[in-house]
């Protein structure tokens, strides 16, 4: 993957496939701890222990269109290349939590990429899913909740191009404020 925003989109697609109605995405930039942490939590179907043990295997997938599943393995590879790790917690009926830890200053840590654009694409393509995105830095934090936006918009669709562009700007401006 080119950047961390691509991983976020990729892992969130797993949540959508697991029929999640709520996805929580936390991005934490912790400079004193030299950590860049991404946590994606959903309320989807969840997985049993045997499945959790297999998802890091590139030859495991729940799809039938192809025989490989590289989403989690690629995330693990990128995290481990920086001295970090990926942990997955899940139980059937209890959703899943994927947490990826990257060493912030490591040369092999991919750049963050266009996270605002990614969040907005996810929201626009899945209006029925509540997406909560929280970005934390040492300067402060910002939380975006698609449910709030949806309530505010009323009958105006989330995927209208003008709304998509405006939301992208709104998130980007707020992130800029807490940029380190």
């Amino acid at each position: 993957m080119q950047d961390l925003s691509a991983h976020i989109m990729d892992i969130a697609q797993n949540s959508i496939r697991a029929r999640a109605t709520r996805i929580e995405i936390d991005v934490e930039e912790r400079i004193p701890r030299d950590a860049f942490i991404i946590t994606i939590r959903d309320n989807g179907e969840g997985m049993d222990a045997a499945t959790v043990a297999r998802v890091t295997d590139p030859f495991f997938t729940s799809r039938t269109t192809r025989k490989v599943g590289l989403g989690i393995p690629l995330l693990k590879q990128n995290a481990e290349a920086t001295g970090g790790s990926v942990t997955i917690q899940s139980a059937p009926g209890e959703g899943a939590t994927v947490r990826a830890f990257f060493t912030y200053s490591h040369l092999d840590r991919p750049p963050a990429g266009d996270i605002p654009g990614t969040i907005v694409l996810l929201v626009a393509a899945n209006p029925g899913v509540e997406v909560r995105y929280r970005h934390v830095t040492d300067k402060g934090e910002y939380t975006f909740n698609s449910r709030e936006v949806k309530d505010f918009l009323g009958d105006v669709p989330l995927d209208d191009p003008d709304i998509v562009a405006a939301l992208r700007e709104m998130i980007a401006e707020n992130i800029k404020e807490i940029e380190i």
Partner: peptide
């Protein structure tokens, strides 16, 4: 928008369609 698509730039493609239709 699966792993294969995202790695090849499908996010950018989707954004382009939304922005230019």
């Amino acid at each position: 928008m699966a792993t294969c698509g995202i790695a090849a730039g499908s996010k950018e493609t989707m954004t382009y369609f939304i922005d230019h239709l």
